[in-house]
Simulated scan of single mutants.
Amino acid sequence: MEIQHHTVEQVEGWSVGRLDQFEGFTSPLVVTPTAGPDLREYFEAHRPLIKEELHRSGAILFRDWRVNTAADFYEVMSAFSDQTLDYTQRTSPRSQVINKVYTSTDYPPDQEIQPHNESSYAFTWPLVIAFFCLTEPATGGETPITDNREMVKHLSQSTIELLEKKGVSYTRNMLDWLGLSWQEVYQTDDKHKVEALLKKDGIHFQWVDESHLRINWHRPAFQMHPVLQTKGWFNHAYFYHRLNQDPRLLDLVEETDLPFIIRLGDQSEITEAVYNELKQAYKAATITFPWKKGDVLILDNMLFSHARKPFTGQRKILVSMAEPVRFEQLV
């Protein structure tokens, strides 16, 4: 197969439609096969075109292709990118399935995961994140996605200016009995290696005790997209806000020891009013659809955030990340 087309709609062997229409904005593309169902083959032949469309629309759902196993999914992602990533500097429990393919966050099924862009707080993050439905849930378990460009349209100018001016301050506490330990986060038992990494990235750190590492750093609320060269919303200000955290945590630890603490860059609080504004803005721009076994959903991680609904049954969604972006590239 050779690339002979200018848009994804012109590629022979597949059909391009859209998810159900959502009020006020355009929903992502849905690509289904009309000839051979080997998605890896199409990715190899049309990689530049697919990437171009992904960075334009932000999300593409590939449905009814022959992707049945974790190995199939890894082959598809390897055809899409030469830079698939390991899951490092971890913030949530995930299990590696095969090389560079992981389970999505291993939280209990009754818990909802709020919208976020993968690793937006980090020094390195994936430009691309992909999800594969290995097992459909019995009920629920959707992965809602939000176009950040649409979400920002629902924010007041004062909130945008506040976050643009002050940025976001992140504090993380790693304790061996609550959340992920520092050994799990950095995938090493060597404190010197951890300290070297933190110093390299300019992160302030404190060993509260042998099992408790506290780190603090600052990030812009809006980041430059390395391909589009446009600035967009890219942070965890909403996700890690105290109002999204389990209130039972405060029965276990002091507020200063919560796993994540979010403030504005000048250490002032992100108020409840701003939190509620962000909550409503995400809600207004979110797209939710049911998973179908074999689905492959690819997101531009700097354009679209993702979440998770509670579910019943044996839901198994796998994830793979690609195309590393380093913060220092953009400043």
Rank of each mutant, 00 (worst) to 15 (best):
M151G: 02
K166C: 06
L213E: 02
L180E: 06
V168K: 01
L243V: 03
T135M: 06
W177T: 13
Q245E: 13
H192N: 15
Q280E: 15
K166H: 08
E184P: 00
R90K: 11
Y102H: 06
T159Y: 02
Q114H: 09
H6F: 10
M174F: 13
E323M: 09
V31C: 03
V208N: 01
V227T: 07
F80R: 09
K51D: 12
K309N: 15
L297M: 06
T32S: 11
D295Y: 05
K292H: 12
D110I: 08
T286L: 08
R308C: 12
D110V: 07
G232A: 09
Q229P: 07
D190H: 14
F222C: 09
L264A: 10
S158C: 07
I287D: 03
F327P: 01
D201Q: 03
C133P: 11
L303K: 06
E272N: 14
L54K: 06
Q267E: 13
D86C: 03
S156D: 10
L49K: 08
F311H: 12
I3H: 04
T143F: 04
F80L: 15
Q183R: 09
M174L: 13
L162I: 07
F132H: 11
L228S: 11
S57W: 05
N244S: 06
Y238C: 01
V76S: 02
V128G: 05
D64S: 11
R40Q: 14
A59H: 09
T91H: 00
L303M: 12
N301L: 08
E254Y: 01
G294W: 10
R66A: 14
E254K: 06
Q229G: 13
I287Y: 08
P290T: 09
F80M: 14
Y42F: 15
R315P: 03
P109E: 11
